[in-house]
Design a protein around this nucleic acid. Sequence first.
RNA 1: GGACCUGUGGAGCAGCCUGGAGUGCUCACCUCCCUGUCAAGGAGGAGGUCGCGGGUUCAAAUCCCGUCAGGUCCGCCA
Length: 600
Amino acid sequence: MKPFGSLRTHGAGTLRPSDDGTDVVLAGWVARRRDHGGVAFLDLRDASGSVQVVADAGEGEADEVLAAAHGVRSEWVVSVRGRVRTRPEGMANPALATGEVEVAASELEVLSVAQTPPFPIEGRVEADEHLRLAHRYLDLRRPGVGEAIRTRARITSVMREVMERNGFLDVETPMLTRSTPEGARDFLVPSRLQRGEFYALPQSPQLFKQLLMVAGLERYYQIVRCFRDEDLRADRQPEFTQLDIEASFITAEDLYGLVEELIVELWSEVLDVELSAPFARMTYAEAMARYGTDAPDCRFDLRLVDLGEVFRGTEVGIFRGALDAGGSVVGWRLPGGGELTRKQFDDWVEFAKRRGAKGLAWGVVEAGEGGGAPTLRSPLAKFMADDEVTALLAATGAGVGDALFFGAGPTRSTQQLMGALRVAAAKAHGFVPEDRWAFTWVLEAPLVEWNDDEGRWDPVHHPFTSPTEDSLATLEQAPGAALAQAYDLVLNGTELGGGSIRIHRRDVQERVFALLGIGEAEAREKFGFLLDGLSYGAPPHGGIAFGLDRIAMLMAGAGSLRDVIAFPKTQSGQDPLTGAPAAVDDAQLREVGLRRLPPS
RNA sequence: GGACCUGUGGAGCAGCCUGGAGUGCUCACCUCCCUGUCAAGGAGGAGGUCGCGGGUUCAAAUCCCGUCAGGUCCGCCA
């Protein structure tokens, strides 16, 4: 493919034996120089790849090129005129796409010299991340790093293709909007024209996309930046990108179909992986019970087992106490875990304690004496009746040589602890196949959950999520049992996206607000514009939003969102390249009506 | 807000536990040599606030306290 721009005729990485004899002009960076005195090799790199350029001793021009080649250094930008030739017998390099050819240079022009880079561009060693981010333009020049950014571009391109093909309209929504109280902390932007008041950067275009449905656009999508002022993680940045989707006159099933079409095409086009759809589905309750999380990693089985029945009449104190208090005993089997040392078991107990658990019990299944029934070697064994051990082994499927872990306590936190253990221990012991793509829908999350600190019901998703038809009847009587018409798509233990069918009826919205303790005045103050909109003939509608960065991270095989964002922030929310965030001068503050507080 | 890991010439590491001269390795950089390399090779050279501050000690990269920065996680966040 001919490169864009008239300063060169070919991309360095595109040359093949079929180009033998072609006169070319290349331009790019000097990746490496191998200087033998009488002959010198330059690896010339551009966005298409790299190719070997040869400067040979000879007559006239050639000697000038060789002299110039002696002087160039890594990362200088050069232009080379020359002729493609197949390499001499035995000199091909099968490790390179261009390894069968080379370019015999007849002219070598230095377009730009370069300082020695602060870390190697071509080396395989990982440089310190802070240093990489401070010189991100050099970091992105490194082939592997830049590749993730290219993969991301391919992903957004396929997303747009699929959405456009399905008749969705790309509509932009405001970046400067108003702060709404739900969810995460807002980033605030002071207003100069309305001194003392603030815009907020959107956490998502949620309310706007619903209003676009009221407006009759029917099918909306946007690849849109969102902002949340919360602490960072490997998979959380303060600004991130969503593929945001909303449609009218649809059911959840319609969305599953669309999303599966999109995901299948993404994996096919970008990774050349053929997924099979429809994806697996499970309920939220199943996810919590079997995997201890709402984002289960289904690449491996090894599920959690509820042991409430097994230990119904137990003498084991910690199990007794948990069950009597209405909590749970949850077990998990580690195949072959009998090999673990005491130290390793202690480490997992420590792992549990670091997560706030009181403890973690464990046992090892051993062969019974004289071929008798298997027994459990465990600090708890002496409190366990024989029939409990038998039932335990049956319930968990544990056999001789396996280890069992037990968590006991309040149901939710115990499931979560065991879920975290399941993932960490399975990873540590090689039970997670890294090459699998395990998609699953998690459906029917609760509509609300009890917030003990504040003494109220909080929405699990957001306050505009529709309850299921069945839940509507008993919404006020049993709020905790109400299910939402909500759905999350999970891949390998990471939530890729989630959404819901929205409430489009005023009376239902009022009942949900009442349940959440949001009075009419408060609702009007906070979401008045949405409620107004919904009162003018809102179609049934619903949508979903995907974390583009997370999708790109998983597809690129990256370990962090930072790897798929061109200019990311560090864990403390700083950008080492620009130095953001930074102080502003008093005049700027005065203009927007702000005054600096003394440092606290 | 909290836990843990890391910080040593330009880069990546070792040294730290058990204190004793800035000691070592690989790469990069500079000079020279070299006509088939591809992580070229050879000879020579330059380059250090051991993140920063304080303490203990005759003596601190090493032990202690604090702090800053980076990372992973919990809380927070859908």
